[in-house]
Design a protein around this nucleic acid. Structure first.
Lengths: 180, 180
DNA sequence: CACCGCTGGCTAATGGCATTAGCTTTAGGC
DNA sequence: GCCTAAAGCTAATGCCATTAGCCAGCGGTG
């Protein structure tokens, strides 16, 4: 039997792809194993089990999202930065719903989440804001982005034709609120 | 063997209690059956299966939430109504996280969700708003309430001491935005 | 009061899943 | 050219949902 030349990253990557394709709940050890050309028990040589895979997918997602945010926020400030951050997160979640769903569990590496957090903070830096309430503003953003993303991928908006418009409207609403 | 005198509502109610106690994901046919004093296969005489139970718990949750909102909004308008709706939803989710988690699947009875939706619309009725954009405003509220609830029950806010304060701050932010 | 059929309970069986145990073989360092 | 650690395998365990098929209690009818 020829070796598959597998490693931990390959297993996690396969699980992430599968999660996007069939939903995180349908990512089974068997399906991940099949994807990488191996039998299910062999995966335990590389990862701790299903929960471990999910935590690592969460870390992967937060890392990718953090990178995307950093890129998107280059050279932008104020409303431009806010809108760029919002659109980047939304695009990521729509494109990678399974990975993003994994982020509801504590990630393997907390630093990955911290980078996302920092980028969000950077998006707010261009506004002239009183120092108190920074925590509240961050929570407003996280709440909005997280809530919108989950409602959208869950099909929670009935008429889905003008979801784009609602999204841009909400960005405008927040921007106006932050500037007064 | 004495009969348990079970019916559909009793099974769904037991599942809802269990979901709040151990999390929706840990609600198993066996645990529900044990809770009502019966073996697992007997449940199939009353419900269609696990997915059916989840859909019915979703309906139960939306019905309860709709009733709570209707009560809370009696005689309130404007900021008072907005704040009451927000606090009611948050309180419900904190007290019944498992039931609320079930609402991410389409409920058994769509009318239950519609009543929640109508109450939210009523909470906005006291603001003097241009007619266009009603859909966007509703989506803003749903996004915020849903996002905040999920982040809070998932432990997504690190320093959880002043989450109350952030919540009230966000209500104030939205209220201000709606009045301009 | 006896019976009869429906209904709600049961046990047993099936198939999928995650995980563990223990074996075998590969591949690389000496 | 060997020898060990790692990477794969099969087999087995135990939990879960679901289905099949059996049996008993209960409400109604004679």
């Amino acid at each position: 039997m020829p070796r598959a030349g597998l490693d931990r990253a390959a297993v996690v990557a396969a699980a992430a792809v599968l999660a996007d394709e069939v939903g995180l709940a349908n990512v089974t050890m068997g399906s991940v194993a099949e994807r990488v050309g191996v039998r299910a028990p062999s995966l335990y040589k590389h990862v701790g089990g299903q929960a471990d895979i999910t935590r690592r997918v969460a870390t992967l997602a937060l890392t990718e999202l953090g990178d995307a945010l950093r890129d998107a926020l280059q050279g932008r400030a104020g409303r431009e930065a806010l809108a760029a951050a919002a659109r980047t997160i939304r695009a990521y979640v729509v494109e990678h719903p399974g990975r993003y769903a994994a982020t509801t569990v504590p990630p393997d590496d907390p630093a990955a989440g911290a980078r996302v957090f920092d980028s969000l903070a950077a998006a707010l830096a261009g506004y002239r804001l009183e120092p108190g309430g920074a925590v509240h503003r961050m929570r407003l953003l996280r709440t909005l982005f997280h809530g919108f993303a989950l409602l959208e991928v869950a099909g929670g908006f009935q008429l889905d034709n003008d979801v784009d418009e609602s999204f841009e409207w909400i960005i405008g609403f927040v921007d106006r609120g932050l500037r007064t």
